[in-house]
Every structure is written in C-alpha cells, then in structure tokens.
Amino acid sequence: MLGSAADAEDVLQETWLRWSKVDLGQVSDQRAYLVRITTRQSLNRLRTISRRKESYVGPWLPEPLLTAPDAAADLELAESLSMATMLILETLSPTERAVFVLREVFEIGYDDIAVAVGKTPTAVRQIAHRARRHVDARRPRMTVSAAETRAALESFRSALNSGDPQAMLDVLAPEVVLVSDGGGVKRAALRPVTGAENVVRYILGGIGRTQASIVIDLTLLNGSPALVFRLDGEIDGVMAFRVDNDRITGLYFVRNPHKLTRIESETPLTLR
C-alpha cells in the first residue's frame, strides 16, 4: 500500500494503539474493523508521502525488501510485491490504490472496502474497475517465472563483471528504461535513462568512475531475483528488474541508503 516499510510499521503501530482501546464486545466483525482502521491510516500516510515526494531529489522508487525464497514461489505474491507493480501503483490516486490493493490482493468485499474508504459500494466498484484497467494496461502481458528472470540477471551480471557492453546489449531490450533513486544522498540519474545504448553507457560510466572493489551478487527482493552491489564490502545499492520475452525491459536501481536498511535481514511476507 505504501511502498515503505518504515511507514507501514508506523501505520500498524497506530492501528494497534487504536485497536487496543476498542471494546471488542461492540465489534461484530473484527477483521473488517481492522481493515477499516488500517486503510484510513494508510490513506492519511499516502497523502503525507505524496507531499514528501514533491521535494524528493530525482526519481522515487519503493523501498526494496529482502524476501525469503517462498515469496518467489508464490506467483501471486511475487507479482503483487514486484518493483514494477509497485511503480504502477504509484500512478494511482490514494483511494484507487487502497481499493485496488484491498480488492485485488486481499479479496475483500466491496461493502467492507466502501466502509474503509468512505465511499458507496457502487462507487467502490467503479473505482476498482478503473484501477484494474489502469494497472492491467501497464502490466507485462505474460507472466515471467523467477527462473527466467534469474537467467536474464545471471547474463546481465556476467556482462557487468566483464565490462562487455555488447554482452549487456544482448540481454537488454532496445526500449529498456533504467530508473535510479539516490534520494539526493548518492549519485543517481535525475531522470529515467531510456534505450539500451544509453543504459549501458550510464552503468559502465558509473562503474568506471569508482576506484572501490565492486562485488555484484544475486539476491531476492520483493519476491523476485535482483542484484545487490557492494563496494569494499558495504552495500552501495540494489537493482530490481522487469523481464519480458527473455529481455530486460526495466531496471530499478536504489542507492538511497535510507531505503537499504531491509537488505541485510529477510522480511517475512504473506497475503493471508
């Protein structure tokens, strides 16, 4: 819902505080009541995040999470958590995003969603339809397995390690887009880099400028294979990917150190 573990934890803390003061004897449906509290707190936080982004330096990417292998095995969970899907959700309004997540990810009924977001069930159905159409239009047409993504990443990592630009071009789609998030703290492109040749030039140029020892490892972020970059043993950034037809079409490079605090330990995740 929020794209930030820290914001999510704040919302859960506030939800718990409110829940702890409730007379449970007066609550007919505890799950629906918790959904309502959490959703309203999330909507308030989304508006705060939106104002925060207005002064953010360069592109904003969701916070990457180190996830367990079972997250990748659950295709529905992996798809809902992927960096590409999270970025699509960023294009929705706060209410559209809340309705979409509650309906499509958690399968909550329209009546309960209506109470949670302060709309009529009819309005919620319309919002859900509009949000679903918006997301579907931007999602990959075909589901790519973790194995296919891992194969593309292995080829890309080998090309990075060898510094071979042609090997990188071979695994990148011509229309590939790289989005980098340094948050004004680390060096990053201030706007998306488009086109395979431009992406290769940008990446190799950045690696060539550093004198530190670079190690690139495979990891699992947001339920999908990804790469973690270490400079002299310290995490410098992580890169998530979107793969279509065995080619990389999206690279999402997070270098903002404030967003890399969840990379050292796994975050357990589940839809239910």
Rank of each mutant, 00 (worst) to 15 (best):
E175S: 05
K119I: 00
A173N: 13
E107R: 15
V193H: 04
D170C: 07
I235D: 07
S158D: 12
H129M: 12
S224D: 05
P268C: 05
S158G: 10
T95N: 07
T267N: 12
T120K: 12
Q211P: 06
Y33E: 07
E197Y: 01
L220N: 05
A226V: 06
Q211S: 07
L153T: 15
G109Q: 08
S224H: 12
A6M: 13
E154G: 08
Q41T: 10
L24D: 09
S42Y: 14
S82G: 01
R201M: 03
G182S: 07
T249Q: 01
R191V: 08
K21F: 07
L81E: 10
Y33C: 08
S265D: 13
S4G: 05
R47K: 07
L204R: 03
M86C: 06
L17K: 15
S42E: 14
Q30M: 06
R187G: 11
Q41M: 02
T149P: 01
D136S: 10
D170Y: 10
R45M: 03
N198G: 05
T149Y: 10
N198R: 05
G233S: 05
L153D: 10
M142F: 12
A137Q: 05
D246M: 14
D7R: 14
L269A: 03
W60C: 02
R150Q: 15
A116G: 10
I127G: 00
S50K: 15
